[in-house]
Design a protein around this nucleic acid. Structure first.
Lengths: 123, 123
DNA sequence: CTGAATCCCTGCCGATACTG
DNA sequence: CAGTATCGGCAGGGATTCAG
């Protein structure tokens, strides 16, 4: 695809990527995939917490006191399903489960950074 | 805030930023601001379309045929409110309104690129 | 300790019809 | 051409309760 001649520099990759030609919000669009991964209240905060290091269920509850069990469970399942984090069961009693980001999940760091940077930028 | 000693390199800015200590999804969190801006079906596609250059209402409808009038209006209002785009009315008949990204809106390019890149990355 | 199941409520999205 | 008004369905999120 040839670059368009617009006033400012053409941004590589996205608007000019052939796969960026979708006319509907399809689930296979990479942007949709990422947004679906981060979708829902509390999701980014859980990821941020795990970017600091692995955590148990209880530690996540302590770090995010206003987050209910249901939503925390939902988020952990959602992120596990997305390949963002691993659930590591420790045998024995009391049951302890550690959550840690996968390498794929750790790569969300730059994404959150980009979101943070734009949100910090004054209009 | 001192850097933590974790196994991998500490990511600058986000997990270690003092303002990143929020324990709830507050509206003032930069990450929330950006996600709120991009929230809702079709929003990113409208932005992508405008990253390619300014468009009229009709041109946006043609580019995104499955997008209804109501939602398109909603998205344009939402993005205008967020300072992402400018609504440029041309006087006379027929009424023509051009939509163009503001400088702030153009800076969403790298954000969408980051979302695209992560979504393209295989787990 | 670490969740899953249930209930209810709210807010978004889409369809349709109508206006300056 | 460029929208707004209204309505209904449905999924997301919170509180509570129960289970392994």
């Amino acid at each position: 695809m040839a670059h368009q001649t617009v006033g400012h520099a053409v941004r590589p990759g996205l608007p000019d990527d052939p796969r960026a030609g979708v006319a509907e919000p399809t689930a296979s669009c990479p942007v949709e995939i990422t947004l679906a991964t981060l979708r829902g209240r509390w999701t980014t905060l859980v990821v941020r917490e795990l970017l600091r290091g692995e955590r148990t269920y209880s530690e996540l509850r302590e770090a995010l006191p206003a987050l209910s069990d249901k939503v925390l469970s939902d988020r952990l399942a959602q992120l596990t399903e997305a390949g963002v984090l691993d659930r590591l069961r420790r045998p024995g009693w009391p049951p302890r489960v550690r959550y840690a980001l996968t390498p794929h999940g750790r790569r969300l760091g730059p994404v959150l950074q980009a979101l943070w940077d734009w949100g910090s930028d004054r209009p």
